[in-house]
Design a protein around this nucleic acid. Structure first.
Lengths: 335, 335
DNA sequence: CTGAAAGCGCTAACAT
DNA sequence: ATGTTAGCGCTTTCAG
């Protein structure tokens, strides 16, 4: 049943090593030989045994992905990261082993057990306990997010600081003088999740530089949370005319609760979302937004992992520049 | 660096097979010997090489999961399936290799290449082209969903037919005589996705049996789609007082658009959701719903896969009985 | 340009 | 209860 490389070699009338080299391309093979081997492979429907290959070559062609399967990080964003990682991995002839974040031992297990060649880790916190562990593994790791100390690991993320600045500058340029950030849920902030903190710092600094009032309000990912956060902002900053919303789940409820409070968008309040383009597109009005290119981040993460595995390139940190897409949810401040 | 089973054997003063048997528990080991071996394993921080193990034992302890990373199937439901699968796999000492649905060749690749011991496939369509392929693999497969012909494969899903019946009976018992099903998006129906069709059949049959008017309306997973579907139902069945909503994404927009149309819930219209409990909990009112136990389905799928791998149990189909949770969104029909 | 053969690290007979 | 050893299927020197 299970056809082996020897079966192929016999059928093609060559040695096993020749078959191996046809497969790997690691040494020149004459055209006729190559063709006989390829014919035999097709005829026998031969598939190399992954374990045997891993044992002999110490390469698995598998990438480990640690994804947060929690619920407070927006699932659709996670999904896009994951698809970015999986589809890109395939272009490098790699498969993806899925680990959940709550299993800190998982990455050690799969790495020490030689199940993966590299690891990609999502949802990195400022002082993430997984980072020192990863730094000591034999396999290279790429962090999606930015810990306080990367310890020599590669990192990639949207430049959330710049994203916040972009949003604030856009509002300030439109004449808004009182603006607020509706941000991540408390639980995310309490974990000191990297992107949430960078977003807040960028917001506060940009507001200061632009000379506008800026308040930051956390926001739970539910209708009730969104309503409460909107009300809190209206109470803290009654004259607010600009809102930056960095919370995919709350976004629709923020918009509906503004309407319920008698604030029209964009006439009374301008709203800038910080979210993936498709989330922006799902809103009832064309939302001005700073795109979170989740798919691209996943792709870049894999490319960086492959660069380290295949070409032993050094670790680096890449922050993707944000892009603001103007929609119908922002307008000049009423004078 | 890489410590092997021989290093452990030497350190413990035993043979390699003894170490192997301590690890697998496949033959009795005296307490003192076992302790010496375990000590050595800990001291050397030994981790068996997964590839070598797979090669020698033809078992990988990896389960392949093919998940639809599309967007029209609600992502939060997918996420729950996935977590159910991953966490359960871990209790069987298995890891999960993630495949995307758009890659029909993927499952053949990982199965023929002996990367997995079994496969779990989500989002099965009535005449799914992957089913015949899976049926011919060496490894057992479990389908989440119900194809027209399982071809000897195991299947598991919520009994959507019974779920629809439960919802309809609940509404009928409350005196509702004109009811509608807001169902899956067209794209899902066009693929003849198994659960969507079973839901519709169950709804229509139960309405017939209960002697009530029932209409079925597809619904796109967006605000616009929900509004359009609600309007379509109101037009087709102006006296509608009962609504079954089987569309997680549209749910909030259905509720808000009913309000916009001047229909109060539950005074004018009773609404039964068919969705995971947490989605029901996210709604602005306590929703009467038939739970989709996504996590449990994922768990059962893995258990069935393991039963086949480890105990060579025969394939079976398991339909989980639905449970209706009464909330505040259903009430007696106005007389 | 091709072949022969030595492992890779582990499991599972087969011994005792 | 424990040890010995022959593979598992592939990659990769080393030899031509």
């Amino acid at each position: 049943m299970a056809t082996t490389i020897d079966d192929v070699a016999r059928a093609a009338g060559v040695s096993t090593s020749t078959v191996s080299y046809v497969l790997s391309g690691k040494r020149p093979i004459s055209a006729p030989t190559r063709q006989r081997v390829e014919r035999a492979i097709l005829d026998l429907d031969y598939r190399p045994h992954a374990g045997a290959r891993a044992l002999a070559s110490s390469r698995t062609n598998v990438l480990g992905l640690m994804a947060p399967l929690r619920i407070d990080v927006d699932v659709s964003v996670i999904m896009q990261f994951v698809t970015g990682v999986v589809t890109t991995a395939r272009t490098f002839d790699h498969d993806v082993l899925l680990l959940t974040s709550d299993e800190i031992a998982g990455m050690e297990r799969v790495a020490s057990g030689s199940m993966v060649d590299s690891l990609v880790m999502m949802d990195i916190e400022a002082d993430d306990p997984r980072v020192p562990v990863l730094a000591r593994l034999r396999q290279p790791a790429v962090l999606i997010g930015l810990p306080r100390d990367p310890e020599g690991l590669s990192c990639v993320d949207l430049d959330f600081r710049a994203a916040a600045q972009l949003a604030v500058r856009h509002l300030a340029a439109l004449g808004h003088r009182q603006i607020a950030l509706l941000g991540s849920p408390r639980a995310v902030l309490d974990r000191h999740t990297s992107y949430a903190e960078r977003m807040i710092h960028g917001f506060e600094q940009a507001a200061r530089v632009a000379g506008v009032d800026g308040v930051v309000e956390p926001c739970e990912p539910s209708m009730a949370g969104a309503v409460a956060a909107v009300d809190a902002v209206l109470a803290r900053l009654p004259g607010v005319t600009g809102l930056v919303v960095h919370n995919e789940t709350a976004l629709p409820w923020v918009l509906s609760s503004l309407r319920d409070r008698g604030r029209r968008v964009p006439e009374d309040v301008s709203v800038v979302g910080v979210c993936p383009a498709d989330v922006a597109g799902d809103q009832p009005l064309e939302l001005t937004h700073v795109d979170i290119p989740a798919h691209a981040i996943g792709r870049v993460a894999v490319e960086m992992a492959m660069a380290r595995v295949e070409r032993a390139e050094p670790a680096e940190t890449r922050l993707l520049a944000p892009v603001l897409v103007e929609g119908a949810s922002t307008a000049g401040a009423a004078h």
